[in-house]
Design a protein around this nucleic acid. Structure first.
Lengths: 137, 137
DNA sequence: GTACATGCAAAGGGTTTGCAAACGG
DNA sequence: CCGTTTGCAAACCCTTTGCATGTAC
């Protein structure tokens, strides 16, 4: 028996009605090692089950995002990318390949909080992306 | 005699052909205390001179951006905002009012560089935005 | 003069939505 | 069953572009 993915389980726990389409989309995200955009999720989903429309992909991803089981990223490419909610991390984007590298730096986290506080704000969210070129030496 | 704004002067120095429209758009940005989006630049520009189309605003802003006299920002609102190129700073966006507060923190700058280097990359660009709510105490 | 800039409206890319039909709990 | 979800296509928003006309240098 092939169990549910963690994402599917999470969705069920949250009481979301799980249609075949939503299950497939949840699995695609679960299986993704990258940070796929909507078009990519759509492509991968229809490979598994062609009865899925792009509109449903948009609607499901938004639903999952609102349920906090999924995080949407906007890397300034004009389209959104998604990944499963998990441990917090930042992204470094390789400007030559588009590859996305995850990293986490505790000091950076602390400093963001501090800067916001010093400006009189509670930090609600943030965005930190580094764009770099692989060092060739 | 009303002198040229710094931005107009910069554009002329770079050899850009300065039409009336471009001058008005440059002045609008120069006078802006905020980080106006294209629509706002268009509105302010047409108040000064109605002979300006939105297409020209887009084209001029892009031209100025390519000439590095202007910086484009994407704060994830689905539309671009612009500001004059100047001293480097980051932005904190008030999630309730949309107000943009500028800040600079040397430690953060150093750490971004370091993180990229440690991952084997040369830092080419970055994006750091804090989204906060004004502390009410 | 002539290459370049403009206005207009149409096209473009990503995303959302109205509606009737299909479906999950 | 009945409210929800879906597919489809049209609509949307921001931005870009083709073309004929106008203009800075």
């Amino acid at each position: 028996m092939t169990g549910l993915t963690k994402l599917e389980q999470l969705c069920e726990d949250k009481g979301l009605k799980m249609t075949d389409q939503r299950r497939v989309i949840a699995r695609v995200i679960s299986d993704a090692e990258d940070h796929p955009d909507v078009e990519t999720v759509y492509r991968r989903a229809t490979e598994i089950d062609p009865r899925i429309s792009i509109a449903t992909v948009y609607r499901s991803l938004k639903l999952f995002e609102d349920a906090n089981v999924l995080v949407r990223h906007d890397f300034g490419e004009g389209r959104a990318r998604y990944e499963e909610t998990g441990h917090h991390h930042e992204h470094l984007i390789d400007i030559e390949t588009g590859e996305v590298i995850e990293f986490f730096n505790q000091e950076l986290e602390i400093m963001k909080e501090r800067v916001a506080r010093e400006l009189g704000y509670d930090l609600i969210d943030h965005r930190l992306e580094l764009y770099g070129r692989k060092r060739k030496d």
